[in-house]
Design a protein around this nucleic acid. Structure first.
Lengths: 338, 338
DNA sequence: GACATCCGAGAGAGCGCTCTCACGAGTCGC
DNA sequence: GCGACTCGTGAGAGCGCTCTCTCGGATGTC
């Protein structure tokens, strides 16, 4: 005589209640079509009555799947986390897409030095089916190590150097070139840039876009100060630029935050925007609509980057082929700063 | 004759390589002290050689633990996600603390209508050992349902009504009262407030703080417009306030974002801050230092809220007792807007 | 020197599930 | 009417781990 089920119901419990076998219950749970309708129905009723929920640990022990995906945010990402809308946006995009696919999102914040090893251990343990790497680092070895570990990986942003894993990125350079054309079209001739860090592809390509755009101005010389994508660095860089050339009449900043910083410095130093100096940013975060004046900026589809990342990793996990890269378009959003 | 291990090494593989039994290897992996040093050493070497990593699914199948904690961000949270530094800050805090405890962070973004059921199913499946609920909703039934499911739960922010689960919150009212004293001390007499949504405790308590602070001004009547914590609502509310009373000389806004909105409206309508109107916000997010003028605001320890949440849930999961509530202090940060 | 004690290590069961394989009963063809 | 199928179902192995129980040998006690 079997005692009443004490804890959570198992397949066995349900099977007994429905007068079927464990195997058949499993079939119903997993949506097999080869079960006689009336049997399936009584099993479903038993499942509902008992409040049965499959034990994911037991399931993944045999299936070798976990139905969860890791999203790794490296140190540099978490540093700017609190002031930048990029990563929250990506998280949302990834999260939504994974939810639709009924996968779990495991967040790995690589904030400390020991994180690297911890992540590798974690991934080696196969607690996740795949990894989305929001890597902005330059020579980060993580993508390659993860690939070597045999885990499906997709990264956000093309890595510096050879890309060894599929990635999602945006058209940095062409977006910036559109911004430069806009400035030139506005009659600006002394156009400077506040670039991003040059150990990130985003930083490099946006600078490349600036240089390419400058080519439309015969005889113009590049005027570059580097920032770190954050607001304060934009304020400082703008000050240095004006010291180097007080006659600057146009600025492209490689992030909205830096553009906002530039706006503040310009205002403080008595320059009118856009009359004296036209300013264009990059990102089109929410706050860009609220700068003073509202920021003209290069829009990148942050949310879509997230959903695309999820889409690609899901396909890889499912064993499908995937494009080596997906590059999403950017476009200029004209507001009042230029 | 046993064939060479094909896939990932298991305990068995390691045991054979080290000439020990599965049980002993397990002991070493789990740090048991009852293994003879030399045996332990050779096992550790075998583990390193083979690159053995325990299979978490197999482990949790028997231990009934998963070593992961869910962080649930409800719809309202994800909506403001992209522009508010609160949730990213909490995520970071929780993430860091969990990392230290070697637990995983599973992010559940409750963005869609079906999320409620999905979350319950998920939690019933015991894929996580505990749940941190960043609930800001009013009559959200989730905390109670989770508790009923027998899962340890901690929420961020006291729920409206009876608190059925432990929570972490901050001293909303007393912080606001300090802000009000500051305004009164500045000689302000017509003090208005832009309140938060009244279906959230944070919204209500900050309003209560305003009303309490106003009591120091004999004969003063409350002047309240409600916002939704976002910037645009602050802009609109400020406009309505000035229509109702053009002589307002002080404003407390229940969030920094709304305070920033108020600042913009005031500037647009030709009011000088703080000369004509003094403005105080709440949150002390990064951006508060960059408003124009820099925002005087009530600081709340966002990061600490996260770490405390993690701390409490870890204790609950470990079977320890926990305070029914932890209320963290707030304090006024005086900058230039008041 | 005989017996109790203790400690390190192995054998084995079992966590809850999936999946292959086998089997019995019906269906069809000739 | 008999062999060949098909189809729904059950039995049973086994995923990789932990943990209890047991046991052999070393140590201690008188």
């Amino acid at each position: 005589m079997n005692e009443t089920p004490a804890g959570r119901p198992t397949l066995e419990t349900v099977a007994r209640a429905a007068g079927a076998s464990r195997a058949t219950v499993s079939r119903v749970v997993n949506g097999s079509t080869t079960v006689r309708p009336d049997v399936a129905e009584s099993i479903r009723r038993a499942i509902a009555d008992l409040g049965y929920v499959p034990n994911p640990a037991a399931r993944s022990l045999v299936t070798q799947r976990t139905d969860s995906i890791a999203l790794i945010l490296p140190e540099s990402a978490t540093r700017v986390f609190s002031d930048d809308a990029f990563f929250p946006g990506v998280i949302r995009g990834v999260g939504e897409a994974l939810e639709k696919a009924d996968k779990q999102l495991v967040l790995l914040l690589a904030s400390t030095r020991s994180s690297h090893d911890r992540i590798l251990r974690y991934v080696h343990g196969r607690t996740v089916d795949g990894v989305v790497l929001a890597s902005m680092h330059g020579a980060d070895t993580l993508p390659e190590e993860l690939r070597a570990a045999g885990v499906p990986v997709v990264t956000s942003g093309r890595p510096l150097g050879e890309a060894t894993v599929p990635y999602i990125d945006v058209e940095h350079a062409s977006g910036v070139e559109a911004a430069m054309r806009h400035l030139v079209g506005l009659g600006r001739r002394r156009i400077a840039t506040i670039s991003g860090p040059q150990d990130m592809v985003a930083g490099r390509e946006r600078l490349a876009g600036y240089l390419a755009g400058l080519a439309a101005l015969p005889g113009a010389t590049p005027l570059v100060e580097e920032g770190d994508f954050m607001r304060q660095s934009g304020m400082d860089a703008m000050e240095r630029l004006l010291e180097r050339d007080p006659d600057i009449d146009g600025v492209f900043a490689a992030s909205d935050l830096m553009a906002d910083g530039a706006l503040r410095t310009l205002r403080r130093l008595g320059r009118r925007v856009p009359d004296d100096v036209a300013v264009i940013g990059f990102d089109d975060v929410e706050a860009a609509r609220f700068t003073d004046p509202p920021l003209t900026t290069v829009h990148q589809p942050i949310h879509e980057i997230g959903t695309r990342l999820a889409e690609q990793i899901l396909r890889l996990v499912a064993g499908e082929e995937v494009e080596a890269s997906v590059v999403l378009p950017t476009h200029l959003v004209v507001r009042e700063s230029a």
